[in-house]
Computed example of a mutant assay.
Amino acid sequence: MQLYNTLSAKERAELIEAAGKERLTISFYQYAKIENPQELRDMLFLFWNGIDVLGRIYIATEGINAQLSVPAENFQKFKEHLDTISFLKDVRLNIAIEQDNFSFLKLKVKVRHKIVADGLNDDTFDVTNKGVHLNAVNFNEILEDPDTVLVDMRNHYESEIGHFKGAVTPDVDTFRDSLDIIEDDLKEHKEDKKLVMYCTGGIRCEKASAYYKHKGFKQVYQLEGGIINYFRQVEKEGVENKFIGKNFVFDERRAERISEDVIAHCHQCGKPADTHVNCANEGCHLLFIQCEECAEKMHRCCSEECKEIVALPYEEQKKLRKGRNNSNKIFKKGRADYLPYLSKKD
């Protein structure tokens, strides 16, 4: 019984290109009590692998968080199968704004302690006591209220390339870092301000809204379905788009353009740019913003040191990587001190 990938990303990409068929990039999540995450994981992997689903899916006792790619011709099979699972019946599916057949190249279904690393003890508060969900129209309306505080629940490298007008964008590396910072900054306004939150697809706000209600905030709201669902509604209903720039996404696309505004800057030269890249040196792989001019000049590397390394024969590069652990550098996305232009927001 195959419960793991047998093809490399390169092999999968070649098959996708040869097939020449449209694929849909989709995300969804659901908080639910799952008694046996491993059993669900194996069942989903077997079915999804059979209909050529690719993606990154986390399952825990608290629910499921999925970002994936499915052949358009198999979408109905995919949806019908989800509907056979009681807690996933009619779950909201966020279909990507900009499609890319190569957004995912492997199927990874993993059992985790949590579906989002929030650092919270869920036993200390009611995770089902969530904030009020807002559609695009209601969201735009509440932003006009002077008593509203709009908070971006994403990380610095996400909000750097795009965010809602007037939003508070915490300078944090992780979701868990933002929770206490936001509470401390707004501690004097738990009674009188409307706390409105948003994130990419809604999952971080689901937990954060319940947490902040537990912490004493009286008026807590969240953008239903996050930025992805918001823009779908904006297009469908013709309401004003209040998001500027790009929406960062966690797949090979890295971002989808929501407005034509470019609000970030190249981390190397400071010119307007909002394209995230990973350093071409596989021993570095730092995520940072790079304009096309610097990409050409630096051979898509983040530093002169990395540029020198990628010029070496591949076998020599492998020897240099052996035994090195760059996880902290990779985790601190865009934080390298040798990048002179960081977090330049308008």
Rank of each mutant, 00 (worst) to 15 (best):
F45G: 05
F45D: 09
F45V: 00
L46S: 15
F47C: 08
W48P: 00
W48F: 13
W48I: 00
N49H: 14
N49Q: 11
G50A: 05
G50C: 08
G50T: 03
I51A: 08
I51G: 09
D52A: 06
V53E: 05
V53Q: 04
L54M: 12
L54C: 05
L54Y: 03
G55V: 03
R56W: 00
I57N: 02
I57H: 00
Y58F: 12
I59W: 06
I59Y: 05
A60E: 05
A60D: 02
A60R: 01
T61P: 14
G63I: 00
I64L: 11
N65K: 03
N65L: 05
A66F: 08
A66P: 15
A66G: 08
Q67L: 00
Q67F: 01
Q67Y: 04
Q67K: 00
Q67M: 05
L68A: 03
S69E: 05
S69F: 01
V70C: 14
V70G: 02
V70K: 02
V70T: 03
P71D: 02
A72W: 02
A72H: 07
A72R: 13
A72T: 08
A72F: 05
E73L: 00
N74C: 12
N74I: 05
F75Y: 13
F75A: 06
F75C: 07
K77G: 14
K77I: 13
F78G: 03
K79E: 15
E80L: 07
E80N: 11
E80G: 10
H81S: 09
H81E: 14
L82D: 07
D83E: 15
T84Q: 11
I85P: 14
I85M: 07
I85N: 12
S86P: 12
S86L: 02
F87W: 06
F87C: 10
F87H: 11
F87D: 13
F87P: 11
L88A: 08
L88W: 10
L88F: 09
K89P: 04
K89L: 01
K89H: 09
V91A: 15
V91W: 11
R92I: 09
R92Y: 11
R92G: 12
L93M: 09
N94T: 07
N94C: 12
I95N: 14
I95L: 09
I95T: 14
A96C: 13
A96D: 14
A96Q: 10
I97S: 15
I97D: 15
I97G: 15
I97A: 15
I97Y: 15
E98R: 12
E98T: 13
Q99H: 03
Q99S: 12
Q99K: 06
Q99Y: 01
D100A: 10
D100G: 15
D100E: 09
D100L: 05
N101V: 03
N101E: 05
N101P: 06
F102E: 08
S103V: 07
S103P: 10
